[in-house]
């Protein structure tokens, strides 16, 4: 087994999230996510995967009833106690369904993270950022002649890559992805998987997935969650060949989930 970098970039400490008082959708999760690697989050439906990663970029704050406790540190900064806008720009997010902004061109979609909050850039800066972001998701050659077209005219897979480019344009430290390929066909899925493996040099990736072969193919570390708890967290190879918890084994062999 190759040696992997084990510098923690993101630390979760005793993280709890509840939608209704007393019921924890994420229950006391502690883990270190390592820099430059892909970490997958697996588990049966409703076990709290989305809830977990949405806690990291403080998405839950958009909904006043959700309660969070515990500690999240990204590069040594306490994420729960700094400006949420800043947190979200450090921790990019890609959603299950591609959501390019339909009123914006492809070009503006890539720059949305700057345009939305009114950051002014020179034409040159913008062109360069758009080109490099689209290149890093392999979309540049496909769209370079139609950058002023609406983002919503692209295929589902292209739209999802556009959303990845949009997140990357902000140069985040970590990219949180919630089942980013579950709405895509196998070819588009494959393309994105290859892309993520290339991207991990630039950005640490946490990806929620239902697709076990996907987790096995692309992730370095895997988490298995069950009923809000982090049951097992280990090297992906170990997890798939020699899991230490019975529930992990049952899930991975398709006994439930």
């Amino acid at each position: 087994m190759e040696n992997l970098n084990k510098t923690p970039i993101l630390s979760l400490k005793k993280l709890c999230v509840s939608y209704t008082p007393g019921k924890f959708a994420v229950n006391n999760v502690s883990a270190d996510i390592y820099e430059g690697l892909i970490t997958s989050v697996m588990g049966p439906s409703g076990c709290g995967k989305s809830t977990l990663i949405r806690a990291i970029n403080r998405m839950h704050e958009l909904y006043p009833d959700i309660r969070i406790s515990g500690n999240i540190e990204l590069k040594g900064r306490d994420l729960l106690h700094i400006n949420p806008s800043e947190v979200r720009r450090m921790a990019g997010m890609v959603f299950q369904r591609p959501n390019p902004f339909p009123t914006m061109s492809i070009y503006d979609n890539v720059l949305a993270g700057y345009k939305l909050i009114g950051i002014k850039q020179s034409r040159h800066e913008k062109d360069e950022l758009v080109e490099s972001s689209l290149k890093s998701v392999g979309l540049w050659d496909e769209v370079k002649d139609g950058l002023s077209k609406r983002g919503s005219f692209l295929s589902g897979g292209q739209q999802q890559r556009l959303c990845i480019a949009r997140a990357l344009a902000l140069k985040p430290d970590i990219l949180l992805m919630d089942e980013p390929t579950s709405a895509l066909d196998p070819i588009a899925t494959n393309l994105i998987e290859e892309l993520l493996v290339k991207l991990k040099k630039e950005v640490t990736i946490v990806i929620v997935t239902h697709n076990m072969t996907q987790a096995a193919r692309i992730s370095d570390y895997s988490m298995f969650m069950y009923l809000g708890e982090l049951v097992e967290y280990d090297r992906t190879e170990i997890m798939f060949t020699n899991p230490s918890d019975k529930r992990t084994e049952e899930y991975l062999t398709g006994k439930f989930g």
């Binding site: 970029n57 998405m59 958009l62 806008s85 800043e86 979200r88 720009r89 990019g92 997010m93 959603f95 369904r97 959501n99 390019p100 902004f101 339909p102 949305a112 993270g113 345009k115 939305l116 909050i117 009114g118 959303c163 949009r166 997140a167 902000l170």
Partner: peptide, 19 residues
């Protein structure tokens, strides 16, 4: 999901409404 997409890029509520 569009609103969440914008929030996830660091936009504030006013910016999401306006833009």
């Amino acid at each position: 999901e569009l609103k969440e997409g914008a929030y996830s890029l660091g936009a504030t509520r006013a910016e999401v409404i306006r833009n």
